[in-house]
C-alpha cells in the first residue's frame, strides 16, 4: 500500500510537460545532422532539418511562457510538480504543442507528431473536464492514458502499425512499457526508465526491418540495414521524458 501512496503522489504538471518538451527540443537540435543522415540514407533527407525547425518554434512558444511565469528551466522537480499556471492546463498546453509542430515541422513528421499531441490533448481535456479543477495535475497513470490516446491518433493518421519501420516501432513499446510498469505499482523513475529503454530497443529493431510506409518504402528491401529516423526522434522523446519525469 505504501507503493500505492507513492504513485498517487507522482503527478505530472503542465510545467513538467513543458520541461519534457524543452529537453526533447534540445536533444533534437543536438542530433539534427545525425537525423538528417539517417533520413538521407533511406528517405528524403529532411527529418533533421524539419524537426529542428519545429522544435525551435516550440522553444519560442514554451520558453517565452516559462520566462513569463518566472520559472527557470532548471528549477528541478519541486518547480516541475507545482500546479500549472492559471492560463494553462495540460490539455491546452498539449494542443499548443500539436499546432506548433504541425506547421513548424511540416511534412509527414509534422502531421504524425501533430496527430500524436492533438489526440493526447483531447484525452487530457476530457480527463480534466470531469474534475472540479481543470488546472489540476494528472497522475502518471492518467498521463500514460493520455500518451496511449496520442499513439492511437498517430496510428490512425499514418495508417500504420508495428514492424513497418516507422516511429510507431519506438512509440508503441515505450507506451506499453510505461503502462505495464505503472500497473505493476512501480514509481515514476522506474516507469519512465522502462519506457525509454523500450523505445531504444524498438528504434534499434527498425534496422532489420523493411520499410513499408513513407518515402523509404520506395527502396523496398534496400531499406533493410538502416535505422529509421522517425523511430530515432521518437526515442529522443522518451529519453527526454525519462529526464523530465523520472
Amino acid at each position: 500500500m505504501l507503493v500505492m501512496v507513492h504513485i498517487m503522489n507522482s503527478e505530472i504538471s503542465a510545467s513538467c510537460i513543458e520541461r519534457w518538451l524543452l529537453v526533447f527540443a534540445e536533444r533534437i537540435l543536438e542530433k539534427k545532422d545525425y537525423l538528417t543522415d539517417l533520413d538521407a540514407a533511406i528517405g528524403d533527407g529532411d527529418h533533421g532539418l524539419n524537426m529542428a525547425r519545429g522544435v525551435e518554434r516550440l522553444r519560442e512558444r514554451l520558453g517565452s511562457k516559462l520566462v513569463a511565469a518566472g520559472r527557470p528551466l532548471n528549477a528541478g522537480l519541486a518547480a516541475a510538480t507545482e500546479p500549472a499556471d492559471a492560463e494553462t492546463n495540460i490539455g491546452v498546453l498539449l494542443r499548443t504543442v500539436a499546432m506548433t509542430l504541425i506547421s513548424g515541422v511540416g511534412g509527414a513528421a509534422g502531421a504524425l507528431y501533430g496527430s500524436f499531441f492533438l489526440n493526447a490533448a483531447k484525452e487530457a481535456a476530457s480527463l480534466l473536464k470531469n474534475g472540479a479543477d481543470p488546472q489540476r495535475n494528472i497522475s502518471i497513470a492518467e498521463f500514460s492514458q493520455v500518451l496511449r490516446s496520442g499513439l492511437e491518433g498517430l496510428k490512425q493518421r499514418g495508417k500504420a502499425g508495428l514492424d513497418e519501420k516507422t516511429m510507431i516501432d519506438a512509440f508503441e513499446p515505450a507506451i506499453d512499457a510505461l503502462q505495464d510498469s505503472i500497473e505493476q505499482g512501480e514509481d515514476a523513475t522506474a516507469a519512465f526508465t522502462a519506457a525509454c529503454q523500450a523505445a531504444e530497443k524498438g528504434m534499434q529493431k527498425t534496422i532489420g526491418m523493411q520499410a513499408l510506409k513513407g518515402r523509404a518504402s520506395y527502396l523496398g528491401p534496400r531499406s533493410i540495414g538502416h535505422q529509421d529516423p522517425g523511430a530515432t526522434s521518437t526515442f529522443y522523446l522518451f529519453e527526454a521524458a525519462r529526464k523530465a519525469f523520472a
Binding site: 511540416g106 509534422g110 502531421a111 501533430g114 493518421r157 499514418g158 513513407g214 518515402r215
Partner: peptide, 11 residues
C-alpha cells in the same frame, strides 16, 4: 503528389 501530401491533406 506523394505520401505526406496525402497525410497533411487528410489532416
Amino acid at each position: 503528389d506523394l505520401g505526406s501530401a496525402v497525410l497533411n491533406t487528410e489532416m
